[in-house]
Design a protein around this nucleic acid. Structure first.
Length: 481
DNA sequence: TTAGGGTTAG
């Protein structure tokens, strides 16, 4: 058990700091200045103290405790007023209606979603003091709070010492660990878990996908379906499909698609269908992606469906098809968002449709009033650069507001300089990259190749040495499969 | 009733 000898309440100094903060958060900025007089603070302080004493003396007065509780929730100040909150907790604890306690702990969990480990520990202290140590639901929420806010040591401890666990407790642990990147311990618990359900399987599969262990994710999916006969849920599909396109085998995509269709899992959830469009496209099978897209009824399709299709065309260099889809999407009344524009601009750049691309960029800014972000600029630079319009590309790169500019844009330009053998611009681009990121070996290699191409062997060698001195990491081109 | 992911420049 965690240390419970100390008071669960914050120290006096700490409390006054919190209290001050809670006061300021109560008030709107305007009120803030006018009311920050000491007398006001005292008044608030007194009010809280009064409530606190009242609740302590009348723990069974449900009406008042509920009022205080709702006040704490609606003013969003309860995370600051732990002491008052404790008093409310105590009232709920002696309440005859245990639902109140559960409701209250849901609020704590909302609090835990702030991922505030220090505050969470405070509540753990309260929980121990109130004798909830063997309360299954409360303990489960505590485990969730710890694992969500990164308290891995604490969550394991609470979990281990729980006298009773149910499947939710196990799932909270497994999915939480997977999210935190500790798949190995998650897997250990998963294998030990007495009654695995679909949440456990999906959580575990998701954990492997997140950690780029796609084969492992796929193996688990196979085991779930074939050996254990567990039906996947829509969430399982959403977890497994990224593993499929990372492996890139369209046969696996078809297999899972067929399975989902046969069992009727795919017809209900547009998110799964969109993910499937994306997966087919990323597996290199644009035909299947398009066919599947066309099968989805018009009322079911949404903006993400269209965007997934367009981004698929983009990665296959099918600029014309992407542009046509974009127009059709607009005709059907969909309003493109920033992601749709990234996709269509990317399609224009891969399909060398410069004029169309520039038109889309203007349309985005003027007609849809979307502020371009760095990816939109990146597409533009790429589009101009790959068609040899290097001056224009550099001009755009220089016009990007410095708050959003990054090394990727200059790296794109450097790539174009390398292709067209523009040494001077390449050097300028390299200089910009080096201001932002010095540890990426490929930049040095690319620039030194440009220099070699121009016959400047000594400069190329100097750059290579600089790369070694700076310990820049050079990733060899390799296939993961 | 305490667990849960669709599209994004190189």
């Amino acid at each position: 058990m965690l240390k419970s000898t100390n008071s669960p309440f914050p120290s006096k100094t700490k409390f006054s700091v919190w209290f001050f903060r809670s006061l300021t958060s109560f008030l709107s900025p305007k009120q803030n200045e006018a009311h920050l007089s000491l007398s006001h603070q005292h008044k608030q302080n007194y009010k809280k103290y009064y409530l606190f004493s009242f609740l302590n003396e009348n723990p069974t007065n449900q009406r008042v405790s509920k009022q205080v509780h709702s006040h704490l929730i609606t003013t969003a100040s309860f995370s600051h007023s732990v002491r008052l909150f404790n008093a409310v907790l105590r009232c709920y604890a002696v309440s005859e209606n245990p639902k109140d306690t559960i409701f209250l702990y849901q609020q704590i969990q909302t609090c835990a979603s702030l991922k505030d480990l220090a505050l969470g520990k405070q509540f753990h202290g309260v929980e121990i003091k109130m004798g909830f140590e063997s309360h299954l639901y409360v303990q489960t929420v505590l485990v969730n709070m710890y694992v969500e806010s990164g308290g891995l040591v604490e969550c394991k401890k609470v979990f281990d010492e729980m006298p009773e666990k149910n499947s939710v407790t196990w799932n909270v642990m497994i999915t939480g660990l997977a999210k935190q990147g500790d798949v190995e311990f998650g897997r250990f618990l998963f294998e030990k878990m007495p009654d695995r359900n679909i949440v456990s399987w999906s959580g575990m599969i998701d954990g492997y996908t997140r950690m780029n262990q796609h084969r492992e994710a796929l193996g688990l999916f196979r085991r779930m379906v074939a050996d254990d006969g567990v039906d996947p849920s829509e969430k399982t599909f959403l977890a497994i499909l990224p593993a499929v396109w990372n492996i890139g085998d369209v046969k696996i995509c078809r297999l899972i698609h067929g399975y989902g269709e046969k069992r009727g899992f795919l017809v209900s959830d547009i998110r799964v269908m969109n993910s499937l469009i994306d997966t087919y496209a990323k597996c290199g099978c644009m035909g299947s992606a398009l066919r599947f897209f066309d099968e989805i009824s018009t009322d079911t399709k949404n903006l993400v469906s269209w965007t997934s299709l367009i981004s698929g065309f983009a990665m296959h260099g099918m600029g014309k098809e992407a542009v046509e889809s974009f127009e059709k999407m607009e005709q059907e009344g969909w309003k493109p968002n920033r992601v749709t524009f990234v996709s269509v601009l990317n399609a224009c750049s891969h399909g060398c449709l410069v004029e169309e691309g520039l038109k889309f960029f203007k349309k985005m800014v003027n007609e849809y009033q979307i502020l371009p972000d760095i990816k939109h600029y990146g597409c533009l630079v790429d589009m101009l650069g790959r068609t040899g319009r290097l001056e224009e590309a550099e001009k755009i790169a220089l016009e990007i507001p410095s708050e959003i500019s990054n090394e990727v844009v200059w790296r794109i330009l450097l790539g174009a300089c390398s292709f067209y053998g523009d040494v001077e611009m390449g050097e300028r681009a390299t200089e910009k990259i080096m201001e932002l990121e010095r540890g990426y070996g490929r930049d040095y290699v690319l620039m030194s190749n440009i220099l070699v191409g121009a016959g400047r062997f000594a400069d190329a060698q100097r750059l290579r040495r600089l790369m070694d001195e700076r310990n820049a990491i050079k990733f060899a081109g390799s296939s993961l499969t």
